[in-house]
Amino acid sequence: MKNTGMNFRHLYYFWVVAKEGGITRASERLGLAVQTISAQLALLEQSIGKSLFSQQGRRLVLNESGELALAYADQIFMLGEQMQEALGDADSDKTRLTVGISDSLPKLTAFRLLEATTTLARPVRLVCFENKFEQLLGDLALHKLDLVLTDRPVRSGTTLRVFSHQLLESGTMVVGSPALAARYKAHFPANLNGAPFLLPTRNNDLRGKIDEWFEQQGLRPDVVGEFEDNALLNTFGRRGLGLFFATAALASEVKAQFGAVLIGHVPQVREQVYAISNERKIKHPGVEAILASGQQDGSNPA
């Protein structure tokens, strides 16, 4: 069948039906009769020459073509929402920047990079979301996010059209409350054998490097806690419940915010920070500022 062109109103009805899980719920959301939406879906399927749903009992479920169409519709209507937000920001003299922050990334590091957006000539309205790395990449690919800040690059071979930019690299340091520092600072690192430690979980890239360093030093720490959320780990560290690793480049900030005292530097355990961006024809000034900030800081060998 010859393609007669797509009506985007029909596509929008399809998108709402798919998101709501049925025509009845979609009709309630849209304020339209069930028969009207059914007719619009039929016209859409006729225009593209493919059926998008299969009947399972009384339910409509997306078939393979419907799943593919939904993926594209997600991008189309998410971009439409972003356009409306951008036009609204134009009236408010602010630029909206939506950033995803990996839950494993130290929040002090994220703040240092995002701080670059506060000096732009046009004010930036930051909208920040925290989630797991994989979920953030999916949202970036769908243009729900302008940028992702994380501790790892996108692995080669991915089908996603996203790009990794290394912003920072730094050694780490072992820190702890004053009481723990007084006990374990002498004879670093040999004195760490059996010391209480708060560590990232094993799905964090930094954890593998930490475990390797412990093994090289012949150390067997007492792991009293493992955390996916870096902020929660630091909170436990601030209460003196264990030693923990921190970014050496942020030594002064770590001491000021968490009251953590330096016990020893670990240059072998290096921490990287990446910005993941998607391919855009229009450059976002906030994204450009963050990328430039990382390039200016360069790497810290400490």
Score class of each variant (00 low, 15 high):
Met1Ala: 12
Asn3Tyr: 08
Arg9Ala: 15
Val16Ile: 12
Ile23Trp: 04
Ile23Cys: 06
Ala26Leu: 03
Ile37Lys: 02
Ser54Trp: 13
Gln55Pro: 03
Arg59Tyr: 11
Leu60His: 14
Ala71Phe: 03
Gly80Pro: 00
Gln82Met: 14
Gln84Glu: 13
Glu85Phe: 03
Ala86Met: 10
Ala90Glu: 12
Asp103Asn: 11
Phe111Ala: 13
Thr118Trp: 07
Pro123Tyr: 09
Arg125Tyr: 13
Glu130Thr: 01
Asn131Val: 00
Phe133Gln: 04
Phe133Arg: 02
Phe133Asn: 00
Leu137Ser: 02
Leu140Ala: 06
Ala141Phe: 12
Asp146Ile: 06
Ser156Gly: 14
Val162Ser: 00
Gln166Asp: 04
Ser170Leu: 11
Gly171Trp: 04
Pro178Ala: 10
Ala186Leu: 11
His187Arg: 14
His187Lys: 13
Gly194Leu: 02
Pro200Met: 05
Asn204Cys: 11
Leu206Ser: 05
Leu206Tyr: 07
Arg207His: 12
Arg207Tyr: 11
Trp213Asp: 07
Phe214Lys: 04
Phe214Ile: 10
Glu226Trp: 05
Glu228Gly: 12
Ala231Lys: 10
Ala231Met: 09
Gly237Met: 04
Arg238Asn: 08
Gly240Gln: 09
Phe244Ser: 08
Thr247Asn: 09
Leu250Lys: 03
Gly259Tyr: 02
Ala260Gly: 02
Leu262Gln: 10
Val266Arg: 04
Pro267His: 06
Pro267Met: 13
Gln272Asn: 13
Ala275Glu: 01
Ser277Asp: 00
Ile282Met: 09
Glu288Ala: 11
Ser293Ala: 15
Ser293Lys: 13
